[in-house]
């Protein structure tokens, strides 16, 4: 049963679904890290976005408008973080912790005030984003079941990998972000306002994270439940670091993490101690990283031997 389950298209389908929220947040972490700031507030931004995604989409009665409004809000939280860190000179970690803690309490409070329930937003009639089937591909036997019929945001997240990559490496603003992150003084010496760049990077980071949060309650699930981000923001932060803070590297690690999450879900069909199974995503990711760094180290050694 377990082997069948792993070979079934549902496994890869579930992998992509589990990857999506983490991927958005990983990209958000990468953009912030490239400009030299650790955005640890991802978790809080996602949690706020998961709640407000439901509220906004219910308000506009449209998933797309709800998403756009949530992205604006995510950008504003990013801006708030930047204001704390850059203007008020708070420690970036402390400011982020503050945002995460506020998110925990405030989401419950707001949920209670607007829906009369502290656990679930089911009384708010929100509009989740639809799943779409892709013509032609949906008819290909195995591949169709994997790729087609995913949520719109899953496709968007994959596209965003390319977009963020191009943005960071092919566009002037991306170059500036990287320059500020590498060496602030050098960047300023050629007339780049490092603060302005960092403000922009954190706003972009907030927008990306908010898309991940929106997906949780408006795609993955169709309502908000308290604390539903469940540490995905922190996992994404780690995934981004493991992927060398590049969009493509972060994507690989998120995908690995998503695949091992889906695998651990399947393994629970067997009768093994679930505590061990639940460590699987983390263990796989660490082992994957260890192999990757080992291979890279070897390569470098070879190069330096030649030199």
């Amino acid at each position: 049963m377990i082997v069948d389950a792993i070979l079934s298209p549902e496994f890869l389908n579930a992998t992509l679904r589990a990857t999506t929220p983490i991927l958005f947040a990983t990209l958000a972490a990468a953009v912030a890290a490239k400009c030299g700031i650790i955005n640890m507030a991802l978790e809080g931004i996602m949690l706020f976005s998961a709640l407000f995604g439901v509220l906004f989409s219910a308000m506009f009665q449209s998933g797309i408008l709800g998403l756009l409004a949530t992205m604006v809000m995510g950008g504003l939280i990013g801006l708030l973080l930047a204001f704390f860190v850059l203007k008020l000179k708070t420690d970036e970690i402390l400011a982020a912790i503050a945002i995460n803690l506020i998110a925990n309490g405030a989401t419950i409070l707001i949920l209670l005030m607007l829906s009369g329930d502290r656990g679930v937003s089911s009384s708010v009639k929100s509009v989740p984003l639809p799943r779409i089937s892709i013509p032609v591909i949906e008819n290909i036997p195995y591949l169709g079941a994997v790729i087609s019929n995913q949520n719109v945001l899953t496709y968007v997240s994959l596209i965003m990998v390319v977009v963020v990559h191009i943005f960071l490496y092919k566009m002037p603003l991306g170059l500036r972000i990287r320059a500020v992150g590498e060496n602030k003084n050098a960047a300023e010496s050629v007339g780049i306002s490092s603060k302005k760049i960092q403000y922009i990077a954190l706003v972009i980071s907030g927008v990306l994270a908010s898309m991940g949060g929106f997906f949780l309650s408006g795609g993955y699930m169709t309502y908000f439940t308290t604390g539903m981000t469940a540490g995905r923001g922190f996992i994404a932060l780690a995934a981004s670091f493991m992927g060398g803070n590049t969009p493509v590297g972060g994507f690989s690690v998120s995908l690995l993490f998503g695949a091992s999450s889906a695998l651990s879900n399947i393994l629970q069909l067997g009768n093994w101690p679930y505590e061990i199974i639940q460590m699987l995503p983390y263990i796989t990711t660490i082992i994957g990283l260890a192999i990757y760094s080992y291979v890279r180290m070897k390569k470098r050694q070879k190069l330096s031997d030649r030199g």
Partner: peptide
């Protein structure tokens, strides 16, 4: 609280 994971686990079942 991880309702999304709960959903995935149940879907697998």
């Amino acid at each position: 609280w991880d309702s999304a994971k709960g959903k995935d686990l149940a879907l697998t079942q």
